[in-house]
Write a protein that binds this DNA or RNA. Structure first.
Length: 501
DNA sequence: TATCTTACTTAGTAGTATTGGG
DNA sequence: CCCAATACTACTAAGTAAGATA
């Protein structure tokens, strides 16, 4: 990891060295006391060379490797469940390595140990053949619990959390759960007006607890914030709605010509920054002033609220309603609305795809799904611009040639007419290509820091996309790749062009 | 009632595989 | 056909939320 950013962080190096020393003999401990005097360069170079060697392998060697891997997947990558063969999502144990917590994680750099069979629990059917542990080892436990979906589990040593082997998203089990998730979100659509009316009413409640709950719910609904469970001290300091602290919001009576503006600025899941300047209703603003009265940095904004309390309340508003259902609901709703708004039925497939991506992007922005700017983005934009310039020149040339040929064709023979025709077709083709390039340019730049796949995979009812494709004559492969198609097979079968979320 | 445990979904990144334009 | 750019896959951390336990 020597070339990684992690290595510039003190916490990372300190944690690593502490764990490293634990693995030493007494003699080694006496010698190796100062991390700064350790030089791992030679090991680093060894692994780099390994990687180079892999890259430089011949076609045959690469093919052999591929076959080897496929054989492994074939043997270990599947299981039988309820008489059906299903793909497993992660059939390999997590190998040892250095813990790479996100953000300012206090445990980054700690050594993640290798797991042995004696630490692994197996969960299989009573009558199924128990997988054989490695020679000379025994499983920690073999159980037959058909109320859970995991096939194997172990406890990871850095955070002490249980890790599971589970099914692939393409499995029936996962597909059914996904389906249920979207059906719950659709049920929310039926009661959302009432819920909104209720929480607006509760902004006026005499009870502080109720007011806080109502304002928090407003944020969850309007901004698609996460619930915000409490976290331990030994994790990165991130927050969601219920765990917001006073330093995460700023109140402005007026900001940039808008009134009653709340500026949110906090580290969310994966320590991704959430920054948003939001104009809110006067009553919400007043409430926030009240909530923040006599509080200092570090105090909870919603001191009378947590996710359990909120979810208990939500359960009473609708069966199965929790905070995260709002995120699913508003994401899918946004996609549907944006597709309705942005799709022009007469447009080309390329233009329709741009519209789809824009709708998808609106959701990603709502949910704050970010990514780091891809390596070489700027260069690839420049290349694209250059291509566009070249294409424009080609069109200019072609146009004037076409013009001349047409003139010649007017007084000329059949042959000249055919030539003019040909040129005309070429011109059309060039113009098509230019348009495609220009669309690509817009799309790529707008997307550089936005991750579309997260919402596509987890928040957007796939039936909306399926219906849109069918209605607009867009092949499904244009919006779902192969993996996504197997994950969403249920939706592809289920939805016709008239499906509405 | 608070805290812990469990099981599951959601998230971004890194490395590999594929593609498509010269 | 080659190689750079893009797309996809594997990986695993980090959330949500329910239920058990102190």
């Amino acid at each position: 990891m020597l070339n990684h950013d992690y290595c510039t962080k003190d916490v990372f190096n300190t944690n690593f060295f502490k764990d490293f020393r634990k693995t030493m003999t007494d003699r080694e401990k006496e010698i190796i006391k100062d991390f700064r005097k350790c030089n791992f360069q030679e090991m680093f170079e060894f692994f780099q060379a390994e990687s180079e060697r892999r890259k430089a392998a011949t076609k045959d060697e690469k093919l052999a490797k591929k076959n080897e891997n496929e054989a492994l997947v074939k043997e270990y990558g599947f299981c039988m469940i309820d008489g059906h063969k299903e793909k497993i999502g992660n059939f390999r144990l997590e190998p040892p390595g250095l813990f790479r917590g996100r953000g300012e994680h206090p445990k980054m750099g700690m050594i993640k140990r290798r797991i042995g069979a004696s630490e692994v629990s197996i969960n299989c059917g009573k009558n199924s053949k128990v997988p054989t542990p490695p020679p000379g080892q025994r499983w920690k436990e073999v159980r037959h619990d058909n109320t859970v979906t995991w096939l194997a589990s172990w406890v990871e040593n850095v955070q002490g959390q249980v890790k599971y082997i589970m099914l692939n998203p393409s499995s029936k089990l996962k597909g059914e759960k996904d389906h249920i998730k979207y059906e719950t979100a659709r049920r929310l659509d039926k009661v959302i007006d009432k819920i909104r009316a209720t929480y607006r009413d509760e902004w006026k409640s005499k009870e502080m607890r109720v007011r806080q709950r109502a304002v928090a719910l407003y944020f969850i609904d309007k901004l698609a914030l996460r619930a915000g469970n409490e976290k331990d001290e030994d994790q990165a300091d991130t927050v969601g709605c219920c765990s917001l602290r006073v330093e995460h919001v700023q109140l402005h009576r007026e900001l940039n010509g808008k009134e009653n503006v709340v500026v949110f600025d906090f580290p969310g899941k994966d320590s991704i920054r959430y920054y948003n300047e939001v104009e809110v209703e006067k009553r919400v603003f007043k409430n926030l002033e009240l909530f923040m009265e006599n509080k200092k940095e570090g105090d909870d904004l919603f001191d009378r609220l947590n996710t359990q309390v909120l979810n208990e309340h939500l359960k009473e508003l609708m069966d199965g309603l929790t905070a995260k259902v709002f995120r699913t609901y508003n994401a899918s709703k946004t996609l549907q609305d944006q597709l309705d708004k942005l799709t022009d039925g007469d447009a080309t497939v390329a233009e329709k795809l741009l519209a789809y991506n824009r709708a998808n992007r609106a959701v990603a922005i709502l949910c704050n799904h970010q990514r780091s700017v891809p390596k070489g983005h700027q260069k690839s934009m420049e290349n694209l611009k250059e291509k566009i310039r070249a294409k424009r020149d080609a069109i200019d040339d072609c146009e004037s040639e076409y013009h001349d040929l047409k003139k010649a064709a007017k007084r000329g023979s059949v042959k000249e007419k055919v030539n003019a025709d040909k040129k005309g077709k070429q011109l059309e083709r060039l113009k098509e290509q230019l348009k495609k390039l220009e669309l690509q340019e817009t799309d790529r730049d707008e997307n550089k820091t936005i991750a579309l796949s997260t919402s596509k995979l987890n928040y957007l009812d796939p039936r909306i996309s399926v219906a849109w494709c069918k209605k607009n004559g867009v092949p499904i492969e244009k919006i779902f790749n192969k993996t996504q198609r197997t994950k969403f097979l249920w939706a592809i079968h289920m939805a016709d062009e008239n499906y509405r979320f």
